[in-house]
Write a protein that binds this DNA or RNA. Structure first.
Length: 150
RNA sequence: UCAGGUGGCUGGAUGGCUGCUGUUCCCAGCAAUGGGGGCAGAGGAAAGUCCGGGCUCCACGGAAAUACGGUGCCGGGUAACGCCCGGCGAGGGCGACCUCAGGGAAAGUGCCACAGAAAGCAAACCGCCUGGGCUUCGGCCAAGGUAAGGGUGAAAGGGUGCGGUAAGAGCGCACCGCCAUUCCGGUAACGGAGUGGGCAGGGUAAACCCCACCGGGAGCAAAACCGAAUAGGGAUGACAGGGGGCGGCAACGUCACCAGAUCUGUUUUCGGAUCGUCGUCCGGGUUGGUUGCAGGAGGCGUUCGGCGACGGGCGUCCCAGAUGAAUGGUCAUCGGCUCGGGCGUUCGCGUCCGGGUACACAGAACCCGGCUUACAGGCCACCUGACUUA
RNA sequence: GGCCACGUGGCGGAGUGGUUACGCAGCGGAUUGCAAAUCCGUGCACCCCAGUUCGAUUCUGGGCGUGGCCU
């Protein structure tokens, strides 16, 4: 699977849908054609379904020192190569963010975390983060939030 | 047996499934490429970036000097070092052994708060003593000699003891310390012995400073090469703006009109500056790619020289090379750690059963020599002290 | 990866070898019918560990943390 390498792609993906599991955080976004930077071949004639999904990893310094971050990235990469061919959609960019609990979480739980995060992200794929949150949050909370914004 | 000291080593193991990077071989293919196999793949600190080099670029006549920074007992090792080895001195420990930025304070300057009479040049607050004067006989006054005692302080101008004296004082003597000098040992730092001097010269140089030695600056994101698309720069060639009317399907032709936009000086009048489209060429070089980039002050073994650091000879081996960054993920068994229980015990622990487990510190990024810091557990060698037994 | 700078109350921010200013914030009081403003008073600090020194926030060494630059 192709990897995300440029900082611009990571920032674009962070504007998409997001789901936080106990073991990881998943961000996903359908790739716009004009912003596909690292692929000069992807012109407008190829449909989006032929463009493969891409995956990137982010582990910040808050998680730990260098060898801890390496280990977190390896576990996320192993889980992604197992799970993403089952649940990833073509034309999407995915970013997996490691957390402090990634290194201690059991591997099967990590895989279920990734599966639920994929389904959650795809269920709210039409909404960006700026729009109203989906029906998970209670109605009173959304009302107060809208009142505060007003 | 217990308690220590020094030096060195190690840093979980095996297997199954499934991945990554480099390299090589085989097969298919014109090629691009695809499939399969073999081999190699993190550390003692890879860390901190604190020193020293290699290498690259810049500056420069070889270089030297000023400023600045660093180092600082002596001798050796090394490419070099602030590192290492051996020795010396001082301090600590019963000892094995450990620690030390360990040159110069009689070249100069500064500082030593508070307290204290006095903080650096010698002086005298309370005191002590002598003779004199006055006296209400309690003492007081001025002169002189002292620095033993008190008090302050981190520090008060050698220390202890004896003699000595009106009281005292290196005033005299003994020992210790200090200074100068001679001889001996040592390459030297330094040590030992003798003689002389009654003793001057407080501390601070991780305060300025003096002396000796070292240092041109920046760093592989250095540097070299290849090199698009877009925007922008330079040269050159061609065309020159806007809306309207008329003719024409359109391209375009023609007619008159307006001279444009931005910034700015100025009260205004009035000025000043910049700005178009297309083609070709040149130069620069952002994403990216290649080199730099792993055969090196290399590792291992052996032998010789040396107390040692280390050096010489011989043999043998090629041993990570990623770039959003590979060297793994997961499962099982064993091992380790830990918890609970049973048994034994020389009370240190051993063994059996069951449970848990995150399994020390920590991830190469151009390379090398050091230093510093972090580190569960385990192993080896030598040495010291105490106790017991023979 | 490489190269630098800085750590002082809750916050900002001076300072120097000898018990650390100042401002805002906090607390208490005065003033006011009640508040604000004003005035008075008060508490809270030199990142950590060693060394030099009689004495370290300062000087030196080592850690830890924060920030910046090169791309």
């Amino acid at each position: 699977m192709e990897r995300l390498k440029a900082r611009r792609d990571f920032l674009n993906t962070a504007r998409g849908a997001k789901w936080a599991a106990p073991g990881l955080v998943l961000q996903a976004r359908r790739r716009p054609k004009s912003l596909s930077s690292s692929e000069p071949l992807a012109n407008s004639e190829t449909p989006a379904s032929d463009v493969p999904a891409r995956i990137g990893f982010t582990v910040t310094k808050k998680v730990g020192k260098a060898h801890v971050r390496n280990r977190v990235k390896r576990r996320l990469r192993a889980a992604a190569t197992e799970i993403l061919p089952l649940g990833a959609k073509p034309g999407y960019d995915y970013v997996l963010i490691g957390r402090a609990g990634t290194i201690t979480r059991a591997y099967c739980d990590l895989k279920t975390d990734l599966l639920t995060a994929l389904s959650r992200v795809h269920s709210k794929k039409n909404h960006t983060r700026r729009s109203k949150p989906p029906s998970d949050s209670s109605s009173t909370g959304s009302v107060t939030a809208s009142q505060k914004q007003g």
